[in-house]
């Protein structure tokens, strides 16, 4: 669809935007197609060279492995060159720091350099509740219970103060956001700081922990009964009949069949393949560098 639209813009039909529904972002902005045309036009004195995309095809699990490489789906904020420059920075940071794959539900240990901590660093262990944002803005929250008090820390993935990212247990949960752990029994979100890592064999599928938790009494942090959660039970005990009726009214079960909504909120497949193939090429390059590097002599 997007390719078709771009081809239409490139052709010189007058007032094309009226016919095929191409929108301007705002009244004082340039069209996406016109800007691209000017960047590569023959008449400009510093013309941008067309770069050939790498011939590699990224593995299929890359889309779930590296979701932070896919840009923001809001088309009003997108631009080809900002995304390219952002991706370069991310890959540079990943060459320095080893960031393994993890999902909401897996247990992490993170060491951060902190000028006010004794020893100038801080290590925190907890379960990953959620992953937010994309690009250089990606962040994730860890939750643990320390001295009977729930502690949550939000980390930025590309923050240069992060020294180490360890995955102690790689697994998924039934839901993508586990904010309901705040209202569950604290024993489900307590983890030992000296926990030993559970090894995950490379290439094996990621296990899904299908534990279903019982939620505590009200007041709640959020309206859990309106969120279609799979990992929670016993919600009805705490609800009045009026609330149950309201939940039925506000429910939108047709939302998952809304094709246009999913199209608007996601990156197109052709585009995501192109982005991830760049990442794959860089990963291969890094691997070669590692293999060629001479091992350190340890006596």
């Amino acid at each position: 669809m997007s390719v078709f639209r771009r081809a239409l813009i490139a052709s010189n039909i007058r007032n094309l935007e009226c016919y095929c529904g191409v929108q301007k972002r705002f009244s004082n902005t340039l069209f996406d197609g016109t800007l691209e045309k000017h960047r590569r036009s023959e008449l400009s004195h510093d013309r941008e060279k067309t770069e050939s995309f790498p011939p590699f095809e990224a593995p299929k699990d890359y889309k779930k492995k590296y979701p932070d490489f896919l840009p923001n789906a809001d088309w009003k904020k997108r631009d080809r060159i900002t995304e390219k420059l952002e991706r370069k920075d991310m890959l540079r940071r990943r060459a320095v720091l080893n960031i393994p794959e993890f999902y909401p539900g897996s247990i992490l240990a993170i060491t951060v350099s902190d000028p006010y901590a004794p020893g100038k660093y801080n290590r925190f262990v907890g379960i990953c509740i959620a992953k937010n944002g994309n690009g250089l803005r990606t962040s994730f929250t860890l939750r643990n219970v320390v001295d009977n008090i729930g502690v949550e820390i939000l980390y930025e993935l590309y923050n240069p103060t992060i020294q180490k990212v360890e995955v102690l247990k790689l697994e998924k949960r039934l839901d993508e956001e586990l904010y309901y752990l705040r209202d569950c029994d604290p024993k489900y979100s307590t983890f030992n700081f000296n926990m030993e890592p559970v090894q995950h064999p490379p290439g094996a599928p990621i296990p899904v922990n299908d534990i279903v938790l019982k939620i505590g009494p009200r007041p709640w942090n959020q309206k859990w009964h309106r969120q279609n959660l799979k990992g929670v039970e016993g919600l009805d005990e705490h609800l009045r009949e009026v609330e149950k009726k309201l939940a039925e009214k506000t429910a939108e079960p047709w939302e998952k069949y809304d094709i246009m909504k999913t199209y608007r909120n996601s990156i197109h497949e052709e585009e995501s393949e192109r982005i991830l193939s760049e990442v794959y090429e860089k990963n291969l390059h890094n691997q070669k560098l590692k293999e060629n590097r001479k091992p350190l002599k340890m006596d």
Binding site: S41, D79, D89, S113, L136, E156
Partner: peptide
């Protein structure tokens, strides 16, 4: 120039700051 987006950057103290990206295309 043409404004093309906003990105976060970090200083060497570890503080975060947001930067706007401006591209200068074909100026004479």
């Amino acid at each position: 120039g043409v404004k093309i987006g906003v990105l976060p950057q970090w200083t060497k103290d570890g503080t975060k700051l947001f930067t706007t990206l401006v591209q200068i295309i074909d100026n004479h």
